[in-house]
Nucleic acid binder design. Structure first.
Lengths: 344, 344
DNA sequence: AAAATTTACGCAAACGTTTGATTATTCAGG
DNA sequence: CCTGAATAATCAAACGTTTGCGTAAATTTT
C-alpha cells in the first residue's frame, strides 16, 4: 500500500491523455471538455492525488511562505503578534517560517540567510535590541524579497513598516490622570537612546501643554530597566519636592519594580500614588501589583497589519515585475489606554 | 542592477563548460580538475551565486523543513519548547514551519494539511486539548511524513513521542514535604480524565508507600481548573479533619488560586500551609504568590529531544527506503522538583 | 461543399539542480 | 605504438508542474 504519491503523469497515463490536459482539467481550464474534466477529477480523488507543492513552488518561483523573525516568543507581545501574523497568512494560504533572534545580531543574520535560502516570498521582522546595522536586510532587496518591519524597526527611511504610535496612548494616560485630579505626575522613562523613550516624553509634554499646564522636566526620570535603576528612579520621584501622586512607568516590568519599591516605602499603590504603565505582560490576576491602567500596543493587530502589508507588496510585485517602485508603506497603529479598574 | 539571480547554467555558459561540471565543481566532486574547480568557485563568488533551494528541494524530494504544531505559543511551556526545537533544527540546517492550533481541532487539521502540502520533512506536534481522533495524523503516515508527538500525546501506542514523567517529580515533591516534617499533605489534582491527573495521584501514592506512610484518599481533591473549583477544593483541604499543612497543586494557576483563597482565609502561605506546584508560569518575581517549590517539566529539553528524535527518523528513512519498520521511539523526560527558597 | 471558426486536446519547453552513464583526454607501462 | 587505466569532463534524464503554441476534429458560417 506504500504507493509513491500519485502524480499528474500517473493520471495521464491511466487515462491515456496528456499531462497538460490533466493539469488543465484539474484547474478547471475552459478549454477542456466536460467529459474528460470529470474523468480526471474523479481519478484524482480516487488515487488521492495531491499536487506536489515543491514542484509548483519551483515552477512558479514562489513558495507561499512568509518568514517571521522576532526577538523572543516568550514575550507575550511577540507571541500575540505572531498569532496575528499567522491568522492573516493562513487565511491567504501562506504558511509561516519562524525564527527567534533572541536579541542576538549574529543569530538574526543567520536566520535572514536561512530564510533567503528557503526562498520565502517575503519577510516580517522585528529587529533585535542590538541590531544597529542593516546590511543583512539589504541583501534581501537584491534578492527581491520584500520586508516589512514591525514594532522594533530600523532607524532608516527606506523601509516598509507598521509600528505603534506611543504618543496617543501616552496622551490618554496623562489625560486620564489629570482628569482624576492628579497634577504632579511623574514618569519613569526608559534608556534615552530609544525612540520609545522619546515618544513617551513627547506625549507627556504634549498632554500637559494641551491642558495648559506647564511641563516640569524634573518629573521625568530615566531607568535603564534594571530593577535597581528603577528603584532609584522611583525613589527620586517619591522624594520629589512636589508631591507626586501618579507615576507613568515605561512598561509593566518597570511598573512592577516601581510599585514594589513604593510598597516597601509604605506607599499605598493606586491610593497614595497611582500607577499607569505600558502593557507587555499578559494581564493575569496573578500579578503582585496591578497598575490602574496600561497603554496597549495591540501586538495582534500590528501582526495582522504587517502581514496584510506584506501580502500587498507581494501582489504589487507580481503585477509590475521588475519595477522597483520607491514607495514605502508605513502604518502607525495608535496605542490606547486601557483602564483596568473602572470604579477606581 | 536588478540581475536575475544567477544560476548554475549562467556560470556554465560563461565558462563554456557544462552545467553538470559546474554542479560538481561547486560540490567539490573528486572527478573535477582543480583548475576548473577553482575557476567555477571564483565565478560563483563573483556573481554572488546562491543555489536555488526550491529547485533542490524539488529535485531531492526534501525540504529541510520541520513542521511544528502546538496549542498556544502564549503559554510559556510551549514557547520554551519551540526554542528547543528551533535550536536543534537550525543546528542541523532545518528550518521550522510553525502553526498554532489554539486548542481547536479544526485548526489542527487545517494546519496538518497545510504542512503536508508544503511537504515538510517531518512533524512535531503537541495535540490540542480537544483532539480525540487521530485520522488527520494517519494521513501523514501514508505520505511517509514521520511525526513525533511531545508532551500532549495521543492515547495510542503506535506513535513516536517524548513526554514528561510526572511520577518522578511528584515523588520528589512529596518527599520534600515529608522531609520538612509535613505528614498531612493535600493534593489539588486536575480533571479526572487526564493522564496528567492520574500520574500525579500515582506519584503521591508511591511516595507515601515508599515512606511507609499510609495513603489517605480524602486528601486528594479535584479541580476542573476554574478558579471557583479550585477555591472549593482548597476549602475542602483547609477544613479537613486532619490538619493539612501542605498542598500540592496541579499547576501554577491552580496554585495561585489556591493560595489566593488561603490567604483570604488568613492562612499564611508557606508558613501555616506550604504550597508546591507544577511549573507552567515563567518564574518571575512579579507573581502575587510563589509556591515553595515547583515540579519542572523541561519544555526546552523536551523540544530538543523531540527534534533529535525526528531527525533520526528522517535519517532512518533515507537509509532504508520504503522499509516501514514497526519500531516506535519513546523518550520520557523525568520531571524534577525545583525548590525556590533554599533557606525556607 | 468549401471556408472559417470553435472546441478539445497534445507537444514540448521551461523552471534549476543532481547524478548515473558515457565519452574524451592524458599518461603509464609494456 | 598499443592497451589499459586513471583522470576530467560531458550528456541526458529526471524530479512534477504549468503554459504558449500548434493542430486535428467538430461545428458553424457562407
Amino acid at each position: 500500500m506504500a504507493d509513491k504519491q500519485p502524480t499528474i503523469k500517473e493520471i495521464a497515463k491511466r487515462l491515456n491523455i496528456s499531462v497538460s490536459t490533466v493539469s488543465r482539467a484539474l484547474h478547471n481550464h475552459p478549454s477542456i471538455g466536460l467529459r474528460t474534466k470529470t474523468r480526471v477529477q474523479q481519478l484524482a480523488k480516487e488515487l488521492n492525488y495531491e499536487p506536489n507543492q515543491t514542484a509548483i513552488f519551483f515552477q512558479q518561483r514562489k513558495t507561499f511562505t512568509l518568514g517571521v523573525i522576532l526577538p523572543k516568543l516568550a514575550e507575550s507581545f511577540f507571541s500575540s503578534a505572531i498569532s496575528g501574523i499567522e491568522e492573516v497568512a493562513n487565511k491567504n494560504n501562506y504558511t509561516v517560517l519562524m525564527g527567534q533572534s533572541h536579541d542576538d545580531v549574529e543569530r538574526e543574520k543567520q536566520i535572514v540567510n536561512a530564510m533567503k535560502k528557503h526562498r520565502v516570498d517575503g519577510l516580517i521582522v522585528s529587529i533585535s535590541k542590538n541590531t544597529e546595522t542593516y546590511e543583512h536586510f539589504e541583501s534581501l532587496k537584491n534578492a527581491n524579497i520584500p520586508v516589512v518591519f514591525f514594532d522594533r524597526i530600523p532607524n532608516t527611511y527606506d523601509i516598509h513598516y507598521v509600528a505603534c504610535n506611543m504618543l496617543s496612548g501616552t496622551i490618554q494616560a496623562i489625560n486620564y490622570l489629570l482628569k482624576k485630579g492628579h497634577r504632579v505626575i511623574g514618569m519613569i522613562n526608559g534608556p534615552e537612546n530609544l525612540v520609545a523613550t522619546a515618544d513617551r516624553k513627547e506625549g507627556y509634554i504634549q498632554a500637559m501643554l494641551k491642558n495648559r499646564l506647564k511641563f516640569d522636566p524634573s518629573l521625568i526620570v530615566n531607568s535603564d530597566l534594571s530593577a535597581e535603576s528603577t528603584y532609584e528612579a522611583t525613589q527620586k520621584l517619591l522624594s520629589h519636592k512636589r508631591k507626586v501622586t501618579a507615576i507613568v512607568a515605561f512598561n509593566d516590568y518597570v511598573a512592577m519594580d516601581a510599585m514594589h519599591y513604593a510598597q516597601q516605602k509604605k506607599v499605598r499603590i493606586n491610593k497614595d500614588v497611582w500607577f499607569v504603565s505600558y502593557a507587555n505582560l499578559p494581564l493575569t490576576t496573578y500579578l503582585k501589583y496591578q497598575p490602574a491602567a496600561s497603554v496597549e500596543q495591540f501586538p495582534y493587530i500590528q501582526g495582522q497589519k504587517a502581514t496584510q502589508m506584506l501580502l500587498e507588496l507581494l501582489n504589487k510585485k507580481e503585477e509590475n515585475e521588475e519595477k522597483t517602485d520607491p514607495i514605502h508603506y508605513k502604518i502607525i497603529v495608535d496605542s490606547k489606554l486601557v483602564i483596568y479598574d473602572e470604579n477606581a
